[in-house]
Simulated assay, not measured.
Amino acid sequence: MTELVDRAARYAAEVDGARRLRRESVAALVTAGFPRHFVPRRWGGAAGGFAPLVEAAITVGESCPATAWCATLFATHGRIAAYLPEQAQEEIWGPHPDTLIAASVMPPSGRATPVPGGWSLRGEWGWASGVDFADWVLLASMVTDGDQDTVRIFAVPAGSYLVKDTWRAAGMRGTGTNTVSLCDTFVPEHRTVTLPELLGTRRPGEARCHNVPYTLVAAVMFAGPLAGAALGAVADCVSTGAARPPSDPGARQALARSSPEASAARLLLREAAGRADRGMVDARTIAQNRCDAAVAAELCVSAVDRLFAARGEHGPAEDDPVHRRWRDVHTAAGHGALRFAPAADAYAKAVLG
């Protein structure tokens, strides 16, 4: 982990400009164990908990939110792949458990046509973070299952798809969240799983991380790098203030208020991850985790907004680290899983009935 944190800090400005991670950072996140974190133990993985992953994401995010984002998603996509049939899991992890898996599953896109033995997949899927380095990608399409439509997720190996350089976001630039393109690519039936299976729980005997629904943990995972970014922005301002103490009382007050906000976001995510690891899995817990993650994201936005405004003449500079973190937090907080309004509605229904 130390090597990854060091490299993330060293290359943060560079990956922001290049719009993708450096290979050295990818190698370090593999060594730190992110891709194998949720891989089933029978394939050599850790089948780990959510709390350790959230803590690791926050730690790396303090140095580089984009690196933390990709590392966390490589881990969580391994959890999704564990829902695939056994034959597909063997193809993905049989050689080793450190397979890098990217994904574009929400919203579903492309077109999947049933053919003998599987499916023919074509179209484009956007927002696949870290896909430039992926060995496999998970893609979701709407399909007709009997008399109703459902979402099906397909596992496609590298070499079967093209990556289009489309990521031009204001923040989280280093994630390389590019577009995947396929043209009539055959996907065997054993490399697919339906979304309802992912939203439910797994069969008895699996590790806890494979026995909780996606909705319990998705938002919490996405929020981890944001908390790291907010804490990193506080650290940047502390470092600057130690070298050149601000004369403006507003800058000192901004630091004093933003620091506990960032810490509060971290505490909310720690508690939510703990519930995912040990708590009862029911509608109320799912709603609580979604709401806590959304509130944590809002706290991170509030913290970096205040710190950015207090930077004065340094804030507008694109290479200012607080400016970079401000862009990263605002971009990541826009993710659908972290929107407060739907999370609040779900929480009110679960608590009030």
Rank of each mutant, 00 (worst) to 15 (best):
54 V>N: 00
344 A>Y: 12
64 C>K: 07
257 R>F: 13
187 V>W: 07
43 W>Y: 15
351 V>E: 05
220 V>I: 14
246 P>D: 12
299 L>D: 04
185 T>C: 14
152 R>S: 03
148 Q>A: 15
201 T>Q: 14
120 S>V: 00
238 V>G: 07
166 T>Q: 02
307 L>A: 03
153 I>Y: 01
75 A>E: 08
247 S>D: 12
65 P>H: 00
83 Y>A: 15
168 R>Q: 15
56 A>H: 06
333 A>Y: 01
10 R>D: 09
143 V>L: 07
32 A>L: 10
211 N>Q: 13
168 R>P: 05
304 V>M: 06
178 N>V: 12
41 R>T: 13
24 E>S: 15
76 T>A: 14
23 R>K: 12
44 G>Y: 07
55 E>T: 13
113 T>I: 11
50 F>G: 05
239 S>L: 10
196 P>G: 10
203 R>N: 10
223 A>I: 02
171 G>S: 04
160 S>L: 13
118 G>Q: 06
118 G>I: 01
93 W>F: 14
216 L>F: 11
286 I>A: 04
270 R>M: 13
309 A>F: 09
333 A>K: 00
74 F>R: 01
15 V>M: 10
323 H>W: 06
198 L>G: 06
218 A>T: 11
24 E>F: 04
214 Y>V: 09
29 L>T: 03
194 T>S: 13
158 A>H: 11
246 P>L: 04
269 L>K: 00
328 D>S: 02
25 S>M: 14
37 H>L: 08
180 V>Q: 00
36 R>F: 02
88 A>Y: 00
22 R>C: 08
120 S>T: 03
261 E>T: 02
148 Q>W: 05
139 L>W: 01
167 W>Q: 04
341 A>H: 09
55 E>P: 01
190 H>P: 02
158 A>Y: 10
13 A>I: 02
14 E>H: 12
103 A>N: 02
159 G>Q: 10
315 G>K: 10
247 S>F: 05
326 W>N: 03
234 V>N: 02
21 L>Y: 00
191 R>L: 06
48 G>Q: 07
107 P>T: 14
181 S>L: 15
319 D>V: 03
3 E>W: 05
309 A>H: 11
330 H>N: 03
229 A>P: 12
112 A>N: 12
331 T>V: 09
57 A>M: 11
345 D>V: 13
183 C>F: 11
181 S>G: 05
49 G>M: 06
268 L>I: 08
104 S>W: 06
335 H>R: 07
326 W>D: 02
201 T>W: 08
168 R>Y: 14
310 A>C: 05
310 A>G: 02
347 Y>V: 08
301 V>E: 12
278 R>Y: 14
94 G>C: 07
236 D>C: 14
280 M>R: 14
